[in-house]
Amino acid sequence: MKIAFYGSSLLSAYWNGAATYYRGLLRALAARDYQITFYEPDVYQRQQNRDIDPPEWCSVVVYEGTIEAQKNVAVDAALADIVIKASGVGFEDDLLLQQVMKAARPEALKIFWDVDAPATLAELKGSSEHPLRRALAGLDMVLTYGGGDPVVQAYRSVGATNCIPIYNALDPETHHPVAADRRFDADLGFLGNRLPDREARVESFFLEPAASSRDLRFLLGGSGWQDKQMAPNVNYVGHVPTRDHNAFNVTPKAVLNISRESMAQNGFSPATRVFEAAGAGACLITDHWEGIELFLKPGDEVLVARDGRDVGDILAGLTAEHAADIGWSALQRVLRDHTYEHRAVEVDRLFRSHFGRKEAAE
């Protein structure tokens, strides 16, 4: 079956946290004989900061960030059996949704794939005339980056026929244990871009513990933090390309996951960083959010902090041996239960079930 996928970027993770999610899931679907074309706009300097070249398992069409160029690629939806428009493409999202679903054949499976459901739902609830809200009735399903029952129920309340979370996972070919790298030597590392609904939590869970633990070394990676005030024991290394993520995760004694505010409040939304770190065998400390135990076992496979003081207490008592044990246990868990191959089996079942029901009804 042919998939036309309209998303932010497959080729670049620059200001694009969904990149590894797209890559892992679509590569696993391609291995199940799906023919995929990914359409991404040339915006936000992503093409100047590519992490990968176009892969063998997926065709990639990069189009200019103009209305005319977008219109030209939207008509390609007519060639696909499955048409997917992701959230957060970054250029005229509402118009793109309208264009691709209008171009899709009547018998095609039409999907909105939301990679930031809590934020999207807040917009929908605030506007009864939101373009996506009006479009939901014409879509076959909404798939989400995560969110559990709260997101499912919320989407149904605003008109979605069906909503299914497809959680982040591990791509073992991309994220795996490597040798330590002196560039990333630290007691605690955090990797994440500076975003409005994450910044206060980064201050609380990372920068404040750093200021209170001057005898420890802290490592900060990600875009946008260059003018942020931070203690002298914080080493800011800027944007970290995906090729260095494994080394960033395994070199510090521990790495920290800090959820965005909306995802922490909603729960059931593990970030890609959770599985990347676990896949590298890193000792992960995560901020608390509802549902963490569905993915990793607190205390054995992940360490959980409810605030910055917890982070400091965990670091004070964390030995290198204990950190290694946590990382090893996390790696075994995600390889067993949480790879993109596992997720692709679920998605493939959804797609084939939909087409089976349509054939039975004809």
Rank of each mutant, 00 (worst) to 15 (best):
V73L: 05
R134Q: 15
W113Q: 02
T66K: 09
A154H: 11
A135E: 14
V151R: 12
L121N: 11
I82P: 07
L124S: 00
T120C: 13
D94M: 12
V142H: 09
A179E: 15
V115N: 04
D149R: 15
A103C: 11
G146S: 02
I164F: 05
I82Q: 02
N72F: 06
V115F: 12
V89Y: 11
D171M: 09
S87T: 15
V75C: 13
G147H: 02
D181K: 05
A86V: 12
V158C: 02
L95Q: 10
H130L: 13
A108H: 06
K71C: 08
G148D: 01
P106N: 06
G65N: 08
D116T: 11
I82W: 05
S127N: 15
A74S: 05
T161H: 12
T66I: 06
P118W: 06
L79Q: 15
T161M: 02
V158K: 00
A154C: 09
Y167W: 07
L143K: 01
G90T: 12
D140S: 06
L143M: 10
V73T: 00
M141S: 04
L143T: 04
A179L: 09
S127G: 03
D171H: 11
P165D: 05
D81R: 06
D181P: 10
T66F: 01
L143E: 06
G126V: 10
N162T: 14
I67P: 01
L109C: 07
D76F: 08
H175L: 01
D171L: 02
I166Q: 13
D116F: 12
L109T: 10
V152I: 14
Y63R: 10
G159H: 01
P172F: 11
V178R: 08
E92K: 12
V151A: 11
L170F: 13
D114E: 07
Y63V: 07
Q153E: 14
R156L: 01
N168F: 02
E68M: 04
P165V: 13
I164E: 12
R182K: 15
P118S: 03
